[in-house]
Amino acid sequence: MSQTQTQTQTLWWASESFWKKMAIWITAGSVVVLIFLTFDTVKQITAGGKRVPAYSVINQRIDYVFDDKRNHQVPVIGPEEPLFGKKLSEEEAMALVSKGKLTTQAKNCMNCHTLLGNGAYYAPDLTKSWLDPNWGTKETREQKMVDFLMNPEEMLHNSIGRRMTNLGITEEEARATVAFLKWMSSIDTNGFPYNFKPIDQSDPAPAAAPAASADAAAAPVQQ
């Protein structure tokens, strides 16, 4: 027994005090690394940066185009295309997007839909809903979205009978929500959702079509 006692003392790597220190150091180390990374991440995802554009981006066309270098689609900010035909200052845009975000929270959107892939799975993901081909043409899209949000239960959704309920969204809230959705579609999400086929936003006159058109985005898609 005395032999085991000496053994207990020699096994420093199996001792309580060693692992107590290890637990503290590993936890502290992880936290320090996390805090360091958090500072950088928060800087990068503050609105106005490259990954998360300023709210005034809703004044412009937003597209989702395949990027050869990164090997997935990325948001592309295009020419001026103000939402509801009215160009907003940065402050006005932020107020509108914020109103939209508050609406999505107050109406509990996240417990049917996913936003950036997080939420519930009873209704479509909203990350790129601004670019969804279901809205038809880019000219009618804004009004269609507003109409849908205000009276969703009367609209045709799908073949399986699942519908969105009427959440009493006012016109002001609906327009703000559309602004929030348009802004959200400009966030660089590392290629999520993958293989998305955006609505055709090219200008009718072929001469004016920029390189970043919907056709270009769809071209490399070969499943």
Partner: peptide
């Protein structure tokens, strides 16, 4: 604690793939 916090705290990263984070 060492194993769980060592793998779990920075395991936070697997939620930061697609939400705009770097």
């Amino acid at each position: 604690v060492a194993l769980l916090f060592g793998s779990g705290i920075l395991g936070l990263g697997h939620h930061y793939f697609w939400i705009g984070t770097p």
